[in-house]
Design a protein around this nucleic acid. Structure first.
Lengths: 357, 357
DNA sequence: GCCCTCTTGTAGATCGGTCTACATCAGCGT
DNA sequence: ACGCTGATGTAGACCGATCTACAAGAGGGC
């Protein structure tokens, strides 16, 4: 029946025959190579259009480039990563490159498998967001394929580039804000240890360390309090519920990122609490954070820009650069309604001044 | 210098030499083909591990399968699509297939380019969410590559499968709910015409038509009111602002999908209105809709399930099925706080009966 | 007229796998 | 002893591009 064998994919051979030239000639036209007369180009172009010919990337990949760049992303439900892809994709508009994205295996979320999958597919360059893979492994991979890593604070990567947010400065902004508001009982809600500790210098680990240091510097060493939760909004919600219903409820929670912060806000809302009871700060300034019904104070580090910059670096590498580069995106605290001065809780008489802003 | 030439990628030839067998033998082991003695398998496996050999997908693709499935997605910032990918990826866990995702070109969002890009890369199967490409074009593509389309209500696709939500029933649920609450001034906020009209039977077009029909059936023909906005939350917000500040503000807005609904809620909140002033309903039941601070009434059609089902159909096709199949996901209305009975309007030039049932 | 260069096009090797066809060999029934 | 069968392994064509090396012809300077 309709096996479609008649519609078999045209090859470069078919085009050559139709145009009355050699395969090599067609290849030249395709690649815009030197040594093509206007006449021949015309004939070949016509034949290509007539046959609906499209070169197969697999065949190209055997010798030349695939004109494909890959991005490995650990989690699609996190909007921050979606922004990164958006930025990358926008940067690629107008170039001959096509972006493909490989999601990390849900069973092995470290990212090795997805990165290898992209490398196996001969992408011309690779961007990855994988805090958990070892830098030695990356150094080993990099000579075979141009590589840009996002969010890795590796000491001195020799063969790959990095684009990072300044998690140190971002955390500083968060804590300055909370301390200025008058908070002392500030909890840091971060992710489970195996995620922050697998490799040194993950964004979450830096945020954690900086939180601890800043608290100590502010003379609040005895107020340092770290709570850990599995990834995901729901896990954050559960952890926050436990925290907020405990005897010594903190007045502020610095969440590892917006995903976590949204879980915290969920708990806050469900318990009928407000920002006057507990302030919440996130990280990433996901678009939903700016929604007036959410109004989450958060650190913006522009995922769009990170994605775009990563692609720019990658294109440089593909063009020949070999010296490693690091780009740091400056963070910016966006203050919204989820943070407020702590309620006066010492004396019962004093009510805090109604300070609306 | 460290050109990394020493770390050159090992080929099947290298493995064969190291194991003292032929290339064909190694290939057999790789594919788990028939005719391999335990002894040879052992030697080959050892050599593979020793050399860190990984087969190149490009080379495989020249003759055999690439073990790659592709998904084309128009927009990453929409969480519903992220859920689809998540579902697809989960379904693929444990199979030898790797999922890769191609985002639509921001300049040409119809999806032709991204779909072609995946086809060019010899994926073994393809899932796409492209309401705007022509079905004739898909029929032409399908014989060359197993194809499953999401959200297409095409009449009788011959060579590809479809997975759809029942947009008709979903819209029915929405309007029944609003009408039962006592609403009559129900506006439908949908997308610009070129998106809903490019191909007949897009989800948004069906939702629109069903809205119109149901209003007429309910005797509210003169209350039919359709507003259109460009895609994106911000455009929806602007349209909603104009609508809510107009003289005859509706009591309810049925938004084309959650992305739009969030823009509406933004406007509602910014104007200091509540669900008592204007009810809002979305579509997709994006995870943020369930957040207590958003609490958006929405139609759930489980993106996770759609993604998973699409992959399941695709695997069937790859296994040999050629008869087309259609799967319909039943929608489910999730009622939350964004909908409420309309406020009793005391006196207006428009005199209508307060029909509280 | 001769050599030299530049342009245009082609032949054929090559990339790294898969797959078909076939050779080899052991065991086995008659 | 003799084919027959089934298991195991190999040789070599093949997939569809790119890329190198080279041939043919056109013009140009002396």
């Amino acid at each position: 029946m309709a096996t479609g064998d008649s519609t078999r994919h045209a090859t470069i051979e078919d085009v050559a025959r139709a145009a009355g030239v050699s395969r090599a000639a067609v290849s030249k036209v395709l690649r815009g190579a030197y040594g093509v007369s206007p006449d021949m180009r015309q004939r070949v172009t016509t034949a290509i259009k007539e046959l609906g010919y499209r070169p197969r990337v697999s065949a190209r990949g055997m010798r030349g480039a695939t004109y494909t760049l890959g991005i490995e992303i650990p989690d699609f439900t996190n909007h921050f990563f979606a922004q990164i892809i958006d930025g990358a994709n926008a940067e690629l508009a107008g170039t001959p490159y096509q972006l493909i994205i490989a999601p990390a295996d849900p069973v092995h979320p470290e990212g090795y498998r997805a990165i290898e999958a992209l490398a196996d597919r001969q992408v011309d360059g690779l961007v990855a967001v994988s805090p958990m893979v070892s830098s030695a492994w990356l150094e080993d991979l990099a000579p075979r394929i141009p590589l840009v890593m996002l969010g890795r604070h590796d000491e001195n990567p020799q063969r790959y580039d990095t684009v990072v947010g300044d998690d140190d400065a971002g955390t500083q902004l968060v804590l300055s804000h909370l301390l200025e508001l008058g908070h002392r009982d500030i909890v840091h809600l971060t992710l489970t240890e195996d995620i922050t500790k697998c490799q040194p210098g993950t964004p979450h680990e830096i945020r954690l360390r900086r939180y601890q240091e800043t608290m100590v510097e502010a003379g609040l060493a005895d107020h340092v309090r770290v709570v850990r939760a599995e990834p995901g909004r729901h896990e954050a919600y559960k952890a926050a519920m436990a925290l907020l219903e405990s005897a010594d409820r903190p007045t502020a929670i610095y969440a590892a990122h917006d995903e976590t912060a949204l879980g915290v806000l969920h708990a806050v809302a469900e318990l009928g609490l407000t920002a006057d009871d507990v302030s919440v700060v996130g990280y990433d300034d996901t678009d939903i954070a700016g929604h007036p019904q959410m109004s989450l104070t958060s650190v913006n580090q522009s995922g769009m820009e990170m994605g775009a910059r990563a692609i720019a670096l990658l294109l440089e590498r593909i063009a020949g650069r070999t010296s490693p580069r690091r780009l740091t995106i400056a963070p910016r605290l966006v203050v919204r309604d989820s943070t407020a001065p702590p309620r006066q809780q010492e004396s019962s008489s004093a009510h805090r001044q109604a300070s609306t802003d």
